[in-house]
């Protein structure tokens, strides 16, 4: 990520057990706050290339309402 120039803070690794629901919620909330600060994904135009070309044309064909 550093090499690619992507802010490292966009990767988070945390161990949470299934019984630590409150911890999970707090972690996600703080992460979402941080991501909002960091702004939009700078690489968002790159992903379409990777998709299975057949799927990609399907998805592009039907833009379902409200999606």
């Amino acid at each position: 990520m550093r090499l690619l120039g992507i802010d490292e803070r966009r990767l988070r690794l945390k161990w949470v057990s299934a019984s630590e629901g409150a911890l999970f919620a707090a972690e996600i909330q703080s992460y979402v706050e941080l991501l909002k600060e960091l702004g939009d994904n700078p690489l968002s135009d790159a992903h379409l290339c990777q998709m299975n070309p057949m799927m990609r044309s399907e998805m592009q064909k039907e833009e379902p309402a409200g999606a």
Binding site: H47, M51, N52, M55, M59, A67
Partner: peptide, 9 residues
């Protein structure tokens, strides 16, 4: 992979 692609579509 398909599930993730469907999510991000």
């Amino acid at each position: 992979h398909e599930m993730l692609q469907a999510l991000c579509a």
